[in-house]
Design a protein around this nucleic acid. Sequence first.
DNA 1: GTATATACCTAATAATTCTAGGTAGGTGAA
DNA 2: TTCACCTACCTAGAATTATTAGGTATATAC
Lengths: 110, 110
Amino acid sequence: MFNRELVKGSTSLLVLQLLNERDMYGYELVKEMDRRSDHNLQMKEGTLYPALHKMEKQEYIECYWQNQKKGPARKYYRITAQGKEILAERTSEWHRYVQVMNNLIGKNES
Amino acid sequence: MFNRELVKGSTSLLVLQLLNERDMYGYELVKEMDRRSDHNLQMKEGTLYPALHKMEKQEYIECYWQNQKKGPARKYYRITAQGKEILAERTSEWHRYVQVMNNLIGKNES
DNA sequence: GTATATACCTAATAATTCTAGGTAGGTGAA
DNA sequence: TTCACCTACCTAGAATTATTAGGTATATAC
């Protein structure tokens, strides 16, 4: 939907925000982002899974397996205390970025 | 200033917007972005020059040399009709992107 | 004559995303 | 019962873009 490069860099912000609301598994994150963005943010699995693994290494999130009665097991992710700090930073950065951009390109156009 | 990946993808939008206001040369674009963003967007020359050359190939902009009485010659860039179309698209895309993101991460925080 | 500012440029590296696969469990229809 | 499809995980290679770290040249100030 969006220019791939424009959205680049907001993956971790989005994931941390969703996990801050509740624990989710990878496949669910993809569907949830699609749903809540009205199909505007269609993150690919090939983008999400490596990003999750990186954030796990950085200890922004941690995971646990949950077997299902039906279907494949799910790997749930939970945000850590450190992850919440990063989320706050990234959110603040996002808002500053939008302000700066809007100043430059004109807030009121189309 | 900002996460390098967050800003990725907005280079062409920024350049087209500035050139839509008036013709500028590369070095000036770098300084002008820095100034108008209160030093938040410090685009590197290594980012800008290749981006300008690409947009020239795409015919979004065109250039002309202007010799100076003092100092090195300047390569001025002018936005084309096609560039103006792209600018309108990119601007609209930017605003949609901000809306979608704000919906997901919560408009009112920090 | 040396440092600094202006003004252009590029090759190599880094970071991220997408493409295009793969594995496996379970359901429903022909 | 086989084939398609959905769930759910994963990764290697290609593509894109930004930064780093240089280079060239003109002109001014000390």
